[in-house]
Design a protein around this nucleic acid. Structure first.
Length: 144
DNA sequence: GAAAGTAAAAAAT
DNA sequence: ATTTTTTACTTTC
């Protein structure tokens, strides 16, 4: 299996896939060899707190609605957040459906689903809300 | 096709 | 501040 892992605090961020990103997720231990490429370099800078954007090909093998949600989330700029409801309104859907679509996101950070929060509260995150909070703080967003 | 299951939001209490 | 509708989309019968 090809990919790379970069360390961030006490976690490892793993990206699976070379040309096309298949998955990206956090884990306690590295699951790939440390291989450098352009994307890993950007991620390293991102985790250092630099404002970087990721342009890479993603494998989105999802139903139509889910893809629309993910594509919209991809456009949220660094350091900004939207609520599930706001996205739902744009897509003429409901907050609950948007949340469900996001929960299928296999590609953390690169698809910035951590920038989607609930209206009063934080919402959820597949790799734990602590990670979500840490990512938001890294981008300069404050949370109670 | 129907019903359950959501990482939500608004309304009601 | 907690509880109860309302909500729409995927998944799984």
């Amino acid at each position: 299996m090809e990919g790379f892992s970069v360390r961030w605090r006490d976690l490892y961020f793993n990206v699976e896939g070379e040309e096309v990103v298949r998955r990206a997720f956090f884990s306690r231990n590295p699951v790939f060899d440390f291989k450098e490429n352009e994307l890993s370099e950007r991620l390293r800078r991102y985790f250092r707190g630099e404002k970087v954007s990721f342009e890479c090909k993603l494998e989105l093998d999802f139903p139509a609605f889910t893809k629309r949600v993910l594509k919209r989330v991809l456009e949220i700029p660094y350091g900004e957040t939207l609520t599930y409801g706001e996205i739902a309104k744009e897509l003429k859907s409901s907050a609950r459906a948007v949340a469900r679509a996001l929960s299928m996101n296999k590609i953390a950070v690169i698809i910035p689903c951590h920038r989607v929060v609930s209206k009063n509260g934080l919402g959820g995150y597949s790799w734990g809300v602590e990670v979500k909070k840490a990512l938001l703080r890294l981008e300069g967003v404050n949370f109670p």
